Amino acid sequence: MEFKELFPVWNQLTQAQQETLEKAATLHHFEKGARIHSGSGDCVGLLLISKGLLRVFTCTEEGREITLYRLFERDLCLFSASCMLHSLQMDVYVEAEESTAAYLIPPQIYQKLMTSSLPIANYTNELMASRFSEVMWLLDQVLSKSFDARLAAFLLEERDVEGRDDLHITHDQIARHLGSAREVVSRMLKHFQAEGLTETARGTILLKNCEGLERLAGTARR
């Protein structure tokens, strides 16, 4: 898909601004598992996803990963340009969950356009507010929701991402998403299986009772 078809406010830009963006943006391909952005000291640039799936996460003091949110086709990743976000107080990492194609926009080009284009400035501010809201929502879930509710919500979210009830995901991967330990995930999945909610095999988890998972997840669902 061409850059101009993906950029959110393309039709609101002047011809000169469109030409600047189109000339500066370069298409990159990332293999599954590739680390694209590695904390606050890294400033790759903004990523506009053409296809694939990116995971944005941070790490706890104990070194456990916890997913902040995921980015899909047409989403714009701001945290990969951390040098633009002077108020960012934590290390944020970005990796490809699937083989991904994304346009890379140099941060200095985007910053200049933000000062000259009200549509870009407004869109960026709205996007930052939305991402901040997602992070605050996640923090509330971690602090106030039980782990079984969070796990149920994650399994249902993963079903939406994969588009099927048999999920190809390991206990370790789930632990990394939820900021937990693999052993905790395994114990809870055994409990889910005993309750008839899921069935676990090597490398896969079958969701057998999605309605039961929905009830368990409750307000932990996004």
Score class of each variant (00 low, 15 high):
168 H>F: 03
194 A>N: 14
6 L>V: 08
61 E>Y: 10
192 F>S: 03
140 D>R: 02
69 Y>P: 00
22 E>S: 09
147 F>P: 04
205 I>W: 02
120 I>W: 04
165 D>R: 15
73 E>A: 07
42 D>H: 12
98 E>H: 11
70 R>T: 09
216 L>I: 05
202 R>A: 12
109 I>Y: 07
148 D>H: 00
71 L>H: 07
117 S>C: 10
179 G>K: 04
10 W>M: 14
203 G>I: 02
133 S>A: 15
217 A>C: 04
218 G>A: 07
97 E>D: 14
56 V>F: 03
78 L>R: 07
171 H>A: 11
90 M>A: 13
74 R>W: 00
178 L>G: 00
67 T>K: 03
111 Q>L: 07
174 I>M: 05
148 D>L: 00
98 E>G: 05
181 A>F: 05
6 L>D: 07
203 G>N: 01
175 A>D: 04
58 T>G: 14
79 F>W: 15
157 E>S: 14
201 A>H: 15
108 Q>T: 13
58 T>K: 11
88 L>A: 01
125 N>E: 11
222 R>Y: 06
86 H>R: 06
23 K>A: 10
64 R>W: 06
144 S>Q: 11
140 D>P: 02
25 A>Q: 10
125 N>F: 11
103 Y>A: 10
204 T>W: 04
109 I>Q: 10
38 S>E: 12
168 H>Y: 03
169 I>G: 03
197 L>H: 06
80 S>N: 07
135 V>P: 02
151 L>R: 04
50 S>P: 02
212 G>P: 09
75 D>E: 11
196 G>F: 01
15 Q>G: 09
128 M>E: 11
132 F>R: 14
8 P>T: 11
163 G>N: 04
139 L>R: 12
3 F>T: 13
86 H>T: 11
7 F>H: 11
135 V>Y: 08
169 I>Q: 06
28 H>Q: 11
205 I>P: 00
97 E>F: 13
194 A>P: 13
